[in-house]
């Protein structure tokens, strides 16, 4: 059974999230402020933290940075704000995923399941082989096949693909991906990233205009979905 810490000040929002998660068999603890939330992260050692960015007593970026200084617990951010800047800041600080209010129970549970699965040690990417759609990727041998036929990827494309695969289910900001693949000097060159994601979609997606796996998080970054 997994323990989820819910940091949210609105009682009714806490109520439905708790109901939804408990229905899935998780145990839920609640904190009404960021200060209490930080204490609870330390004392409870939850498997997942759900954090509302609109708390009156604090700054989500600060919260995530302090948690990240000693823990890799997945953090799912709830944001009511329509500006993308706040979401990017908290994702860059180390949050794993975000949901924009209002969200459905289905969306919430899907994200929670994905993050809990990632959080479980030893399970992610044990095998160098990944399969999605008609594609098979062998990370060890640098081979990608579509329906058994080899697909030629450039070195950069393969590097980008492996970073996305390693973080499957997570939102990666443009900045994170650029730093990971091209290096810290290229973090402003978002058009490079966009072009290479477009290449991957052309080569690996059935319909590049409506991608099933290489998903765009508009204004924020990308997410790979199996």
């Amino acid at each position: 059974m997994s323990l989820v810490l819910l940091v949210e000040d609105e009682r009714e929002i806490r109520r439905f999230i708790r109901q939804a998660l408990e229905g899935e068999g998780s145990e839920v603890r609640e904190a009404g402020t960021m200060a209490l939330g930080l204490e609870a992260v330390v004392s409870l050692k939850p498997q997942l933290v759900i954090l509302d960015l609109g708390l009156p007593d604090g700054d989500g970026v600060d919260f995530v940075q302090r948690v990240r200084s000693w823990s890799q617990v997945p953090v799912l951010v709830l944001s009511a704000r329509s500006t993308e800047r706040d979401k990017i800041a908290v994702l860059d600080a180390g949050a794993d995923d975000y949901l924009t209010k209002p969200f459905s129970v289905g969306e919430l549970l899907a994200r929670v399941r994905a993050l809990l699965r990632r959080g479980r040690p030893g399970e992610a990417l044990e095998s160098p082989m990944s399969r999605f759609g008609r594609i098979e990727v062998d990370l060890a041998r640098h081979v990608v096949t579509k329906d058994g036929q080899p697909v030629r990827l450039t070195a950069m494309e393969f590097k980008l693909l492996s970073v996305l695969l390693a973080n499957a289910g997570r939102v990666l900001t443009h900045r994170q991906l650029l730093r990971e693949v091209w290096g810290a000097t290229h973090v402003e060159h978002t058009h490079y990233l966009r072009i290479y994601v477009a290449h991957l979609r052309q080569k690996l997606e059935d319909d590049p205009t409506q991608p099933a796996h290489f998903q765009t998080e508009i204004g924020i970054g990308y997410r790979f979905q199996f």
């Binding site: 929002i13 939804a20 229905g23 609109g54 009511a80 209002p102 969200f103 129970v105």
Partner: peptide
């Protein structure tokens, strides 16, 4: 719109919870 969105989130989520099969 900010003040409206918070209760809307609760309303939407609570109603959605009721529609779940369980």
């Amino acid at each position: 719109s900010h003040d409206i969105r918070t209760p809307l989130t609760a309303l939407y989520g609570l109603a959605d919870t009721l529609t779940l099969p369980r």
